[in-house]
Nucleic acid binder design. Structure first.
Length: 111
DNA sequence: ACGGTGACGAGAT
DNA sequence: TATCTCGCCACCG
């Protein structure tokens, strides 16, 4: 469990219900603009007990981009729809509409 | 060590 | 618009 992974979990847990963001944006917020793939890796290897809204993270195109057999696309689609987010039959979300913009005050980083 | 892989992303075609 | 290509970087065998 790397420090970077812990930061990912901490930040994702701050995404409010009904909003989504992208892997790359999370990487940028954590100060590593080229670590989008590592954000995906962090969520792929997510500890079970941590209660993280992983389903609110999608790719920059707005598509559900999940390959974990334990959490199929269909499940992520249902979880998003349950909080009022429209998901197309091709697993696409309107990023313009549901994009999360965190307040800078809520980001205590600086490692 | 080292090449292949991938919950990514941006730019080219 | 839909693909394709390439850069990226931690992880794995």
């Amino acid at each position: 469990m790397s420090p970077f992974h812990l930061k990912v979990y901490d930040l994702v847990s701050k995404i409010p219900k009904g909003k989504v963001t992208s892997y790359g944006f999370i990487a940028i917020l954590l100060g590593k603009p080229r670590a989008a793939r590592q954000v995906g890796w962090a969520l792929f290897n997510m500890p079970e007990g941590l209660d993280i809204p992983w389903w609110r993270v999608i790719n920059s195109k707005g598509f559900i981009s999940i390959k974990n057999p334990n959490a199929p696309k269909q499940l992520q689609k249902e979880l998003l729809e349950k909080e009022g987010i429209a998901v197309s039959d091709k697993y696409m979300v309107d990023l313009k509409r549901y994009n999360w913009k965190p307040k800078s005050s809520s980001l205590h980083l600086c490692p």
